[in-house]
Simulated scan of single mutants.
Amino acid sequence: MKKLALLFAGLSLFVATGCDNDDNNNTIEYPIVGTWQPIKKVVTTVAVGETPVSDGISFDTDCQKTSRWIFKEGSTGKRTDNGDGTSPGTCQPTFDRNFTFTYDRDTKAIQVKYQGIVEPDKGKVTMLNETTLNIAFEDKTDPTEFHSETYTLKRIPQ
């Protein structure tokens, strides 16, 4: 009977401590580096004392689907937004700039500084996984109005 009690106590101890492994963190950190296609943008504006307004913009035309945000090693990149050209069936860049960026994995803060533009865009990465990147940029220049633009981007395999 003593052997059975010792066996039961040993199994209980194994179950209570043997399966608990706090050192094994299975969180995968996906890189922001890569080529991304914008899928949609949500613009939210809230003026003091006014009703909030949000507009969703889908990048669903053939030209818009060729837009790319490229984040490279070394904190550089290029953003090209494409739209319909003046001739039917043609595309033209509506925004085409090189940039530098900083991204803090811990706080999820991101700053994008476009070539030729004085003020950097400051925001937060709200989601980053294998296939999706959501970035929310806030414009804090007007103290009477909250303005944000949240982009959803899809990773383009290379």
Rank of each mutant, 00 (worst) to 15 (best):
G18Q: 05
G18K: 05
C19M: 12
D20A: 01
D23H: 08
N26Y: 13
I28S: 13
E29G: 12
G34C: 04
T35E: 11
Q37I: 09
I39N: 09
K40V: 02
V42I: 13
V43T: 06
A47S: 06
A47K: 13
A47V: 04
V48Q: 10
G49D: 06
T51I: 05
T51L: 03
T51A: 08
V53L: 09
V53D: 15
S54A: 12
D55Q: 13
D55I: 09
G56T: 12
G56C: 02
F59T: 00
T61H: 06
S67Q: 13
S67P: 10
W69I: 08
W69R: 01
I70V: 15
F71C: 00
G74T: 06
T76Q: 10
K78R: 08
R79W: 14
T80Q: 11
D81Y: 08
D81G: 02
N82Y: 13
G83K: 10
G85H: 07
T86W: 08
G89R: 01
P93T: 00
T94P: 01
F95M: 13
R97I: 12
R97Y: 15
F99Q: 11
F99S: 04
T100I: 04
F101H: 10
Y103Q: 12
D106S: 15
I110Y: 00
Q111L: 07
V112D: 03
G116H: 02
I117G: 05
P120V: 06
G123P: 01
V125P: 01
T126L: 02
M127T: 12
L128K: 05
E130Q: 15
T132Q: 08
L133W: 02
L133A: 05
N134Y: 09
N134P: 04
I135E: 09
A136L: 14
F137M: 02
E138Y: 01
D139P: 00
D139Q: 11
T141R: 10
E145T: 14
F146V: 14
F146S: 12
H147T: 09
S148L: 12
